[in-house]
Every structure is written in structure tokens, then in C-alpha cells.
């Protein structure tokens, strides 16, 4: 049993690197995912993950599989889409989801076209699905750096962000933090998507953000326990996914996201906020 669970990590450096990368992602991207969920922006996270593709693709087109170029390209493309969607939302009658959808669809189409201009299918697969089992020092430092930035950023924005989530009118009334919280948070989302995209690919990066958060939401009633539980779920799923990938010889990124999905479905069945809770026999109610 121990062999099955531990030796892959002790014997193989690439597994240890993958584990370190996933640890950093769970600590940084998952808390961001919790706020995406609470802001009812889960699908926007998905949209934005598509939006970073043309930037990464342009970097790839210019410099090949260069970490720096693809990262910078991805971040720039993500921020441009976020800002453009924000401007359209404020200046036109379109709501945020509509304007974001328009920009990310264009962005995705442009990205796929740019990748196909030069790449082979293998490269496209790397961009779309990541390469968590082949993380080099540079990628690890990048993911770790973005996680550090995210944790400081969230600590800084925490109170305004919480208020912006559950009572934005009040926040606007008492301070000028509202746009800072909103755009600061979206920038953190973009950073984490780019960091997740190196490990899990653009299509999978949102998985480790949203799935553990949704699962944890079914159990937790306070914000702190929600954040802690989501990170714990993300860590467990990462380890399980890496092991599954190692033993069954399947791609690691999808394995990790599927493990997140397993936790989600287990929570759906078992958690007090889930599917079965409303169908079980009613327990005796309290005195008062």
C-alpha cells in the first residue's frame, strides 16, 4: 500500500516536481476559485481561461515553446479581455456575461488559428492540456511565484472582496474600494489561469479552481472553513490524480481534474447541502 502511494514520489523527480506544482496551484488557484464561485462567476473563469489562449499562442508563434513568452502573452491577453469586457459592460447596455462571452469567443478563435499557423498537433495538445509531468525549474518558480502573489493579493483585498461579493451597494456607499476589489480580483484570476495553464492546460486550469470550491461549498457554512476545505480537496485530488496517472499511465492533467470531480460527486451525495440531504428522513427538530 505504502509502495503504491509513496514510492512514485520518492523514486521519480518528475513526480515530485508535479506534486510541488500541484501544491502551489491548490494553495493559490483554489482560493481564487472559491471567490469565483461565491461571485457566481464560475463560468466566467472558464471563459477567461479560453481568453488567454491567443496570447500564449502568439508567444509560442514568436518564440516557440518558451515559458516566458507564453506566460507574458497569456497574461496580457487575459487582462486585455477582462478590461475590454469591463469597458463594454460599463459603457453599453450589454451585461458582463454577454460582453465577456463575445470577447472570449473571438479570443479563442484567434488563438486556435494562431496555434495552427505554425504548430503541430502535439504542441496544440500541450497548450490545451498542459504538461504537469514535465514541469521544469522555470515553470515551477513561475507557479510558486504566482501563488505567493495571489496569497498576498487575497490577503490585501480580502475584506473589500467579501463585501463586493455579498453587498456591493454597501461597499460603494462606504468606500472607493469596489472597482479595486473587482479588477484586482479579475487580475488574480488571470494570473492563476496562466499559472494553471502551464500545469494543466488552458482547458483544465479552471477545473482545479471551481470543482474543489463547489464541493467544499456543499459542506462549509463559514468562509474560512470553505477556503480551508477547498484547498484540502484540491490537494487530495492532485495527489490522487498524479498517482492514478502514474499507475494507470493516463495523462496527469485530466486525471487530476477527474479526481476533483470525484470529490465533487461524493460531496453531492453525502454533504448536508447536497442531493440526498433533502430526501433523507427528517431528523427531530430542535427545541428552539
Amino acid at each position: 500500500m505504502l509502495d503504491l502511494l509513496v514510492t512514485p514520489f520518492t523514486d521519480f523527480a518528475f513526480m515530485r516536481r508535479a506534486l510541488a506544482g500541484c501544491l502551489a496551484l491548490a494553495l493559490g488557484a483554489t482560493p481564487v476559485g472559491v471567490f469565483l464561485l461565491l461571485r457566481r462567476m464560475s463560468l466566467m473563469g472558464d471563459a477567461m481561461s479560453h481568453a488567454i489562449l491567443p496570447g500564449a499562442a502568439l508567444g509560442y508563434l514568436a518564440f516557440g515553446l518558451s515559458l516566458g513568452a507564453m506566460t507574458v502573452g497569456g497574461i496580457v491577453a487575459g487582462l486585455v479581455v477582462v478590461l475590454a469586457a469591463g469597458v463594454v459592460t460599463r459603457a453599453s447596455i450589454l451585461k458582463e456575461d454577454a460582453s465577456l462571452a463575445a470577447f472570449y469567443l473571438l479570443s479563442l478563435a484567434a488563438g486556435v488559428m494562431i496555434v495552427s499557423l505554425r504548430g503541430r498537433n502535439l504542441d496544440l495538445l500541450h497548450v490545451l492540456f498542459g504538461s504537469v509531468l514535465a514541469l521544469d525549474d522555470g515553470s515551477l518558480l513561475l507557479i510558486g511565484g504566482i501563488t505567493t502573489l495571489t496569497l498576498f493579493g487575497l490577503a490585501l483585498l480580502f475584506r473589500p472582496l467579501v463585501l463586493e461579493c455579498f453587498d456591493p451597494a454597501f461597499l460603494r456607499g462606504v468606500s472607493r474600494w469596489s472597482p479595486v476589489a473587482h479588477y484586482g480580483f479579475l487580475a488574480l484570476v488571470v494570473f492563476n489561469l496562466v499559472s494553471g495553464f502551464h500545469a494543466l492546460g488552458t482547458l483544465m486550469a479552471v477545473g482545479i479552481m471551481i470543482l474543489p470550491s463547489a464541493a467544499a461549498r456543499l459542506w462549509a457554512h463559514e468562509l474560512w472553513s470553505l477556503l480551508a476545505l477547498a484547498v484540502a480537496f484540491a490537494l487530495t485530488s492532485s495527489v490522487a490524480g498524479l498517482l492514478l496517472s502514474f499507475h494507470a499511465d493516463v495523462p496527469a492533467g485530466p486525471a487530476i481534474v477527474l479526481m476533483c470531480g470525484l470529490v465533487y460527486f461524493a460531496s453531492l451525495l453525502a454533504a448536508p447541502g447536497g442531493l440526498l440531504a433533502g430526501r433523507l428522513p427528517v431528523r427531530h427538530h430542535l427545541e428552539s
Partner: peptide, 8 residues
């Protein structure tokens, strides 16, 4: 505008 589903 309070979101009643928010865990606070």
C-alpha cells in the same frame, strides 16, 4: 443587494 447565500 445582500446575497443571502453568501457564507457570512
Amino acid at each position: 443587494e445582500i446575497d443571502p447565500s453568501f457564507p457570512v
